[in-house]
Write a protein that binds this DNA or RNA. Structure first.
Lengths: 342, 342
DNA sequence: CGTACCATTGGAAACGTTTCCACACAACGG
DNA sequence: CCGTTGTGTGGAAACGTTTCCAATGGTACG
């Protein structure tokens, strides 16, 4: 009843109850060394009895650190991304960081605004999956950001950022090689824009497989623009108008995979009998409900954990570094051997 | 160069540049009425030139409001929940709220800790999907929470909270009635714990369908404990040990659905030919890659939007209310008619 | 026994805003 | 011409912490 603010119990209330100074309470509670045992006990008792919870805002303001990480993502509904974010969140929580997740929806204007928002919220670090590696605006915003930055599947060598990349090339290479070994040559490849690491890297794997087999690269089947479902659907439909349509399709990312699948449905083509389909990235229950589909797999949960680790290292003053996560080609055909999902 | 803190530009820098008092800058930037046109222009110009971004921390501390919503969820990896959270976050962003997402992982200890975390972070409101409606500890924590609370698929009438519920009963009823009309009577039902709204409500629909058909309820096929994949898998395996095993299964939630599907795979039973499978809640690409499966559908995106709306209303001083979202039974068999996914 | 040092503690400034209050000045009515 | 009202502005307190600094008292050492 003595407390000034009716609702909240503040450090002052604890100090009063323990009969000590405010500064002493702070020292005890923040684990400072120079406190006597009796002081420690009295303060801890008082804090416990009052159910004192330090005000994170005030702490942050004073300490100059919010223990909050900003996570900016292109498509927050995409299960692949959201698993990364969530696994990262779980990992960060262990170190008492919180996460603010913002969605750019693939728009560079939103990216800029979101960066300002995060700056305003004074996050201690930011993790982001950028739309492009070439948006001048966003890059300068990142450069002036007064907190360390971790990029997902992007490279900006001129900025002092860490990067978490995936070795898409080898997974895609193995997938395409497998298709070629089965006799496919008309292998379509639909993915995002050419000017970002992930697409460049996937394309590299795709082309390498053809070169190794001494085959011409079917450039008329390579469709690179964005990660939207819409684009992938339209392109898939067009591909089957060709005189020499594809016999296999690779789609990069969950959005495009969905787009292509919907197109195939419209075309009345079965992914189980009519065409080989390889998804780059999986979605929940992929392995169990999508017999005959193949994929290039990377583990978003692991990626989230690495992301947490990398950003913490940067915050703690570590030097920027790049980590590359492996991808593996998964042939799920074995599932049908078990008679499941005929 | 005059600024005290090298890195940041503060309101003081703006004031200095504009040649006015700090308080005036604040008034202009927060859209206060009593400012002259000349003052407004000078301040806005100075702020623009310096690229001033107000410090959200200091604002929050002073204003007593963080414009942040806490979102506590049981299983952050579950695509159904994560879509709700994300849709909600997109909606909140429009009103300049941010979201802090925390994961209880289904543990009541974590729930308590997370609530303390959110309290400490002084969120303006909290949205949560609780493990149980009966955890004394958590309930008292919620009651003492100095911000409004919105519950997802839970009811706590003695607390002054809003609730966002779903009308599971009618969807489940329709699904079970459909199965009965096809001649099924051995219909298993696997879902979460009995003592929460969602399970009670689903069970109600399940039982009503049997009663309407004047059939005995097969209580030996009803397995209610938790939403884990593990439980559902084990129970599914056990169900097929019965002398009179089920011919159809309903599983409540994405976790349990996955568990049951993995069990069926182990049992070498095809969900396409051997058993009718109805999922309560769908997952990404359900409609396109899971031919012959049926579901009781509710729209997580809509739920997220309602959640945002409800919590904002509470924050703005509105009275607690309950909204009920419909669910619909979806029979996907039509997909096979198109020859897709044989 | 005095001095220097160390361990502990309390007081107060600081973090970057918002907002209350007081003041200056103009306009206005009596 | 003076009191009243109103408008715009600046100064300073406040939000709830942390941390710097000074002060206290005790102990060890010369």
């Amino acid at each position: 009843m003595k407390s000034k603010t009716a609702g909240r119990v503040g450090i002052e209330d604890v100090a009063e109850r323990a009969g000590v100074a405010i500064s002493s309470v702070s020292r005890v509670l923040s684990g400072h060394k120079a406190v006597s045992e009796s002081m420690r006990k009295r303060v801890e008792k008082a804090a416990e009895e009052l159910g004192y919870q330090p005000d994170h805002l005030a702490q942050s303001l004073r300490r100059g650190s919010t223990r909050t990480i900003g996570f900016m993502i292109r498509d927050i509904m995409n299960p692949f991304f959201s698993i990364i974010a969530q696994s990262c969140e779980i990992e960060l929580q262990k170190s008492h960081y919180s996460m603010i997740l913002v969605n750019s929806g693939g728009s560079e204007t939103n990216e800029r605004n979101n960066l300002n928002l995060l700056k305003s919220r004074r996050v201690d670090g930011i993790i982001c999956s950028l739309v492009s590696e070439n948006t001048v605006d966003v890059k300068s915003n990142l450069k002036n950001f007064n907190a360390p930055v971790l990029l997902l599947d992007r490279e900006l060598p001129d900025l002092k950022t860490s990067s978490l990349l995936c070795d898409h090339a080898s997974g895609v290479h193995d997938a395409v090689s497998h298709l070629i070994s089965e006799g496919h040559t008309r292998i379509a490849f639909i993915s995002g824009p050419r000017n970002i690491y992930v697409t460049r890297n996937r394309l590299e794997g795709y082309e390498r497989a053809f070169k190794e087999a001494k085959l011409e690269i079917p450039t008329d089947l390579v469709k690179l623009k964005d990660f939207s479902e819409k684009f992938a659907k339209e392109e898939t439909l067009k591909l089957f108008q060709l005189p020499d349509p594809p016999t296999a399709i690779l789609t990069g990312g969950i959005g495009p995979s969905g787009g292509a699948l919907y197109a195939l449905k419209d075309l009345n083509k079965s992914v189980y009998t009519d065409i080989k389909f390889i998804a780059l990235d999986e979605w929940p229950f992929f392995d169990i409900l999508s017999p005959n589909l193949m994929s290039v797999h990377r583990d978003p949960e692991i990626m989230g954990k690495y992301a947490a680790k990398l950003i913490k290292e940067l915050i703690d003053g570590g030097a920027p570094k790049t980590i590359v996560i492996p991808t593996v080609f998964r042939n799920h055909e074995s599932l049908t051997d078990q008679g499941f999902g005929k």
